[in-house]
Computed example of a mutant assay.
Amino acid sequence: MKIISWNVRGSGRLQTVKRLRQMLKLHNPQMVFFMETKLGRQQMERVRRRCGYTNGIEVDPEGTRGGLCLTWRNEVDITLSSFSKRHIDVFVDDNEKGCKWRFTGFYGSPYIQDRNESWAVLKSLATNKDFPWFVVGDFNEIMYGSEKKGGLPRDKRRMELFRRILKECQLYDVGYEGSWFTWERGNLPETNIQERLDRGVANMEWINMFQEDYKGGLSKSKMKERRKKQVLIRKLTELAKKERDYETLEELIDTKINLNFELEKEECYWEQRAQIDWIRYGDRNTSFFHGRALQRRSKNLIRKLKNKDGREMGDLQDMEGIARCYFKKLFSTE
């Protein structure tokens, strides 16, 4: 099943509707979730029908802010569960998978003062844990510093809160394919800001159910990132050999910044993957669990200690004597 989530930032203009129709014709998704429609129910219904979708649920905007719409093809069986100005929650009767799962289109408030209210809505939706659950939309928040480029750094407490909310809801980022950033403002390099505000998150039941699709989507993007990282490393090596002038130093610094950004991005990805893998396999009696246990044991094993003369001792009895003397001296009273 193909699903598109799109913050249209107003769908009343003819140019926007034209773009909508072209994109939907090109990708032909079974489900589409629109945010910031800024249109009343009747107006948005006319727009989606012009795009070829007869089924839909619309949520009115508050003045010129917000507005949501979830629409789907006739072959998809949808049952509405709940909706608000922040979400549309439905059950999908999936004929391909032969089961029912939850879909939630979510739109987080772009205003800091309303952020807690957005997270409260998400937490209230997480109380129903009986079905595989997929949440997609514009959360208007980032998880890590690497998900923002340009402008002032994001407050760490805000990012930690977002990660904690997702953890409490037992939702995990399902990755991405294509551009890392989903929102951009400013045309000039010095004013340009890019952020990854849109994402898909899901519980383990949903991830396990769509495991093949999930892995396939990640492999292409990771290969592209690996190539980009290799190019940056080669460029950095070449620049380091050049004569140091102003232009070379400027390019060297810029390349280092981009490489550090790519490394941080990869670190964030593997941190999320490690959490998912541990939840999926960690508490089972499998080779994965034993491999992790052996790896941790090997990492924590002390192989040598230095005595007071600076000599390295690897014998177990010698190491015990060195440790005993060290702590005896540390805790003795002068």
Score class of each variant (00 low, 15 high):
residue 102 R to V: 00
residue 54 T to P: 10
residue 73 R to E: 14
residue 36 E to L: 01
residue 33 F to N: 02
residue 91 F to Y: 14
residue 265 K to A: 15
residue 294 L to G: 11
residue 255 T to C: 02
residue 207 I to A: 03
residue 9 R to M: 03
residue 54 T to K: 13
residue 76 V to C: 11
residue 88 I to M: 11
residue 99 C to V: 10
residue 191 T to A: 14
residue 271 E to G: 14
residue 244 R to T: 14
residue 236 L to T: 00
residue 259 L to E: 01
residue 78 I to K: 12
residue 297 R to K: 11
residue 325 C to N: 14
residue 158 R to Q: 07
residue 60 D to L: 00
residue 248 T to W: 06
residue 103 F to G: 11
residue 220 K to E: 15
residue 167 K to M: 11
residue 197 L to F: 01
residue 186 G to T: 04
residue 242 K to C: 13
residue 38 K to P: 04
residue 239 L to I: 00
residue 9 R to T: 06
residue 310 G to D: 08
residue 24 L to Q: 01
residue 141 E to S: 09
residue 127 T to P: 11
residue 52 G to M: 06
residue 285 N to Q: 14
residue 117 E to G: 15
residue 41 R to Q: 14
residue 198 D to T: 03
residue 65 R to T: 07
residue 78 I to W: 03
residue 5 S to N: 02
residue 306 K to E: 12
residue 237 T to N: 13
residue 98 G to A: 02
residue 146 S to E: 14
residue 59 V to Q: 01
residue 131 F to M: 11
residue 144 Y to F: 12
residue 333 T to D: 15
residue 44 M to V: 01
residue 203 N to M: 04
residue 168 E to S: 02
residue 84 S to V: 01
residue 142 I to V: 13
residue 104 T to G: 02
residue 113 Q to D: 12
residue 326 Y to K: 05
residue 151 G to A: 00
residue 114 D to S: 07
residue 46 R to S: 08
residue 28 N to Q: 14
residue 13 R to N: 15
residue 202 A to N: 00
residue 50 R to Y: 09
residue 306 K to W: 13
residue 267 E to M: 09
residue 158 R to N: 06
residue 300 N to V: 11
residue 53 Y to N: 04
residue 210 F to A: 08
residue 261 F to M: 09
residue 91 F to D: 12
residue 156 K to M: 06
residue 201 V to E: 01
residue 30 Q to C: 12
residue 52 G to T: 02
residue 287 S to T: 13
residue 216 G to C: 11
residue 211 Q to C: 12
residue 328 K to M: 14
